[in-house]
Simulated scan of single mutants.
Amino acid sequence: MSDPIERLRRKITKEVLWLYILRLLRERPMYAYELKQKIKETFGFEPATVSSYVVLYKLEKDGYVTAEWQEQEMGKPSRKYYKLTGDGERLLEEGIKFMEDILEKLKE
C-alpha cells in the first residue's frame, strides 16, 4: 500500500493539472514548456511533459484556452502560446471555490 500523503499529493497535483495551468494563464499567455517550468517553480511539482500537452489540448478543445502561434527570433522555432478565455476564467474560479469549500469542511 502506498503512503496516504503521497497519494493525496498525486491526486491534488497531477490529476487536477488543469487547475494549475488555468491559474498560471490568468497571469499571461504562455507556451507549454514555459507552463511546465512555472508549475514547478510556483507549485513545487513537475508534471510530465506529455500530461501538460494533453491537458492543454483538452482545455483548448473545450474552449477554456485559445492558442496562437508566435514567431520567435531568427533561427528559433515558432511557439504556440495559450491564453485563458472567459470560460476558462469561470472554470478556474469554480475550481478554486470547490477547493476552498472542501478545505473549510475539513477544518471544521
Rank of each mutant, 00 (worst) to 15 (best):
M1L: 10
M1G: 15
D3C: 08
P4E: 09
E6F: 07
R7E: 15
R7I: 12
R9T: 05
R9P: 00
R10S: 11
K11Y: 10
K11T: 11
I12V: 14
K14F: 08
V16A: 06
V16Q: 15
L17N: 05
W18P: 01
I21D: 15
L22P: 12
L24K: 06
L25I: 05
L25G: 09
E27I: 02
P29S: 13
L35V: 04
K36F: 00
K36L: 12
K38W: 03
K38I: 02
I39K: 08
I39P: 13
F45V: 09
F45T: 13
T49P: 06
V50M: 10
S52L: 15
V54A: 07
V55I: 13
V55D: 09
K58G: 02
E60H: 05
E60M: 06
E60I: 00
D62Q: 08
D62M: 05
Y64E: 12
Y64R: 07
T66F: 01
E68S: 06
W69C: 00
W69D: 09
E71F: 03
E73Y: 05
E73A: 13
M74K: 13
M74A: 12
G75P: 04
G75K: 01
K76A: 06
P77F: 04
P77D: 09
R79E: 13
R79D: 04
R79A: 02
L84N: 11
T85D: 11
L92D: 07
L92S: 04
G95W: 04
I96E: 15
K97F: 05
M99T: 08
D101Y: 01
I102H: 02
I102M: 11
I102S: 02
L103V: 03
E104L: 02
K105F: 01
L106Q: 03
K107L: 13
E108V: 01
E108H: 09
